[in-house]
Amino acid sequence: MISSLVTAFVVGGFICVIGQIFMDVFKLTPAHTLSTLVVLGSILDGFGLYEPLIDFAGAGATVPITSFGNSLTHGALAEAEKHGIIGVLTGMFEVTSSGISSAILFGVIGAFIFQKRKTTY
């Protein structure tokens, strides 16, 4: 239990450090940083390296945005394994899209409930 929490903290924190280095050292905007990380997660899954990381770190690997690229690639690959090259197109959102769907849903609910502040981001 406790060791899972510690590994989640360390691995999740480490992925955020990579993001911070992109932002500070390479002077990327947050949008560029996030896009790079998503591509990175997707490539890692192509080599079959992201699933072992999830097995090791749990939420430390599933909560950062890299897991978004991973799950898209994973769905595409799983479907391609079954149906060949067409599956690459159809399988992408198959495995998981809870991040997008919940962001849309809570975005609308948030817009409904909350009033505009000077800046919220």
Partner: peptide, 15 residues
């Protein structure tokens, strides 16, 4: 980046 990289940062951007 500690608040932008986790999925909460993605949610924050959308919301």
């Amino acid at each position: 980046a500690g608040s932008a990289v986790p999925v909460t940062g993605f949610g924050n951007a959308v919301i």
